[in-house]
Design a protein around this nucleic acid. Structure first.
Lengths: 111, 111
DNA sequence: TGTCTTACCTATAACTAATAGGTATGGGCC
DNA sequence: GGCCCATACCTATTAGTTATAGGTAAGACA
């Protein structure tokens, strides 16, 4: 039931995941729900999107994984590394710039 | 000298081009400069990005091309069709929703 | 037993922006 | 004339990701 996105999504999963994990460590399945809820139902990333991004971020040293057993169930918690925080800052800056640029174009009143 | 973008650009060229052309018809080379200027230097799309998008939009019936000779030089002006305006509206809505969703996530104060 | 939710995973497809070229004309400069 | 820059168009290839569509397995609950 994740069928939100047409365009405008490049880089977004990475940004959102880094941002949410920078506040508190979470596991993948939890992230999927958090993105939907915190975005105000505007965004809904499928697990098939979130897990590969988590693996990629971990491999690049931006996240650190920690396996925990909860209620007999396996969970893999992810926390942002120092390198990850730097990356988050960069991505946030890029986002702000691009978002502003698009607003500038859209905001122009019709002539 | 167009080297702006890292991420967050999917769907953006199409949106910007439709929006700018909805105000007045323009030709490709002019669009390239307009995007840079109107966005406040935040965005800079290379010709290699803009021309293929124009062709795609025309093929899909969202733009209509009109060749004009100016100063002995050939220019191809593009205007938005009715179908194109509808598409622009949809894209704008998508953009607003996604942009809002991302703001919601980013804006959360650290806990 | 059967179904739902939780929790993880991956392979493939689909999309599209970015790169890196290329062609051709006109104007200005020496 | 020869040179360079700006204008104005173009395309093939690469790169990078998201989206799709699956699959596995355990626990809860009826």
């Amino acid at each position: 039931m994740a069928k939100t996105n047409a365009a405008f999504m490049s880089g977004v999963p990475e940004l959102l995941i880094l941002r949410l994990l920078s506040r508190e460590e979470m596991y993948g399945y939890q992230l999927v729900r958090a993105i939907r809820i915190v975005s105000g139902e505007a965004l809904d990333l499928a697990e098939g999107v979130v897990y590969p991004v988590l693996h990629s971020l971990e491999q690049r040293g931006l996240l650190k994984a920690k396996e925990k057993v909860f209620d007999g169930r396996n969970r893999i918690y992810y926390a942002v590394t120092a390198k990850g925080r730097k990356r988050l800052q960069e991505l946030t800056n890029d986002w702000q710039r691009i978002q502003q640029g698009i607003s500038n174009v859209l905001g122009e009143h019709h002539g």
